[in-house]
Design a protein around this nucleic acid. Structure first.
Lengths: 127, 127
DNA sequence: TAGCGGTACCTAGTGCTACTTTGTACCCGT
DNA sequence: ACGGGTACAAAGTAGCACTAGGTACCGCTA
């Protein structure tokens, strides 16, 4: 993977999975598939299972074993109260980070549609 | 710190510092101060120095030692070519992540001003 | 002159996280 | 009988931010 993403996902991947579980309960394999559909194509399957173990141990989700027509029984994860709290914290942290990082972006392109179509400038008294 | 932030900063902090250095060269202590001014209040000083060592080893910056009136000589870091490339990669990865995470946000407030004031819908022939 | 606080740098150790790799187990179609 | 999709799991690796210190230089003040 692009190396950058690998490190960037640390700390955010948990929130991503929590957000998916907030929509509806799901099992590991399903979550992996859901991530791929949503554009997170390069996330390893093993990563998700490890993460699910962690959030279960932290008590963010409850687990129910459900028999499957194909393969071994599924472990269906459901977000519980503290999981929702954690998710709320995630969005708060994410919003903070996103806002502050966006402020670091080079000055151009802050107001869209006022930049690249500018072949002639009025060149008044500039610095 | 808020725990979430600690993990979220992994992978992004390098980009943040690179972005600051893109504006102008700076030394460690100065970068730390700059981060605080920009709202990153809780980032430990030691973290920055460790990060600077890493990006120097990776060749993203060049270093010049400059005597200071107060205290030990400063190590002034300047972004070089490969550092700028790395920064461009960072913005690319960040934009990708930000866009995909934003898509996970609960449905409300996606297009500002076009949602919650919608008590009646036209309900034509939808899919 | 002894001490304090600001400037400026550096490092060892810890904990957390995503990735890689490999393995198990079940089922279906050919 | 075999491969491939479904489904879960674990061991080992590498990278990163944090904690908690320490070194060194300087000016001010009690």
């Amino acid at each position: 993977m692009a190396t950058q993403m690998t490190e960037m996902l640390k700390g955010t991947l948990e929130g991503i999975v929590l957000a998916i579980l907030a929509e509806r309960s799901a099992y590991g394999y399903e979550i992996t598939a859901s991530l791929r559909e949503r554009g997170f194509v390069d996330i390893a399957e093993g990563t998700i299972y490890a993460l699910l173990v962690r959030i279960e141990q932290k008590g963010f989700v409850s687990v129910e074993r459900v028999p499957s027509e194909k393969g071994p029984p599924r472990k269906v994860y459901s977000l519980d109260g503290s999981g929702r709290e954690r998710l709320a914290d995630f969005w708060e942290s994410w919003d903070f980070l996103a806002a502050h990082i966006d402020a670091l972006r080079p000055a151009r392109a802050s107001t869209p549609g006022a930049l690249d179509t500018n072949p002639h400038r009025t060149n008044g008294e500039n610095a």
